[in-house]
Amino acid sequence: MTRNLFDQQLDDLHQNMLRMAGLVEESIEKTIIALKNHDVKLAEKIYRGDDLIDDLEKIIEEQCLNLIVQQQPLAKDLRTISAALKIITDMERIADHSSDIAEFTIKMAPEKYIKPLVDIPKMAECAKAMVNRAIDAYIKQDVELAATVCTADDEVDELFSLIVLELTEIMKKCPDTVGQAINLIMIAKYLERMADHATNIGEWVIYGVTGKHRKYNNKLT
């Protein structure tokens, strides 16, 4: 006995998850480009693009609830669907943070950066890769891959500490920079949270496959 309709519906769900993940990755990427290039136009586009992701989240949420009503999933299916419900929330938050950063980009557009941005794009790259891998792991139901996402979070955390330390030094030396330095710290913080959400996604993937919760990151609740 197979459940063709159910499997088809699960497949549809996965397609939408992939679409949402693609949009989220794109928004991270564009955020960094806008930040680096003082690109107000792009930043505004990111800001508006967030609505699309929000809509998709609603669609997927509804898909999941329908599946629960129609198919009464149990065991693996139940875990997959509940994981999807949690993952879309994390993805939506990541996209939110993208638009938060975009907001700062718009605010800081007229200013010249107090230092060349090196570590922040690195962090962003890292976060993007984590989201990418987490979604990949979800689709492939790959626990190993999901676990690498969780360990990658440490790298992001380190970069964050480094950035904070560096900016603190700059602020100490030159109090004029405080305004912008705080903004940059905020951006770094958002990136750090993005990575945390990506870690969460990884954890949900592991739960979906194995049924076990593994806490790699206790900073987020």
Binding site: M1, P73, L74, K76, D77
Partner: peptide
């Protein structure tokens, strides 16, 4: 058990 309760049995 998994196969049975998720309806993918047999």
């Amino acid at each position: 058990t998994e196969d049975y309760i998720t309806g993918r049995f047999g």
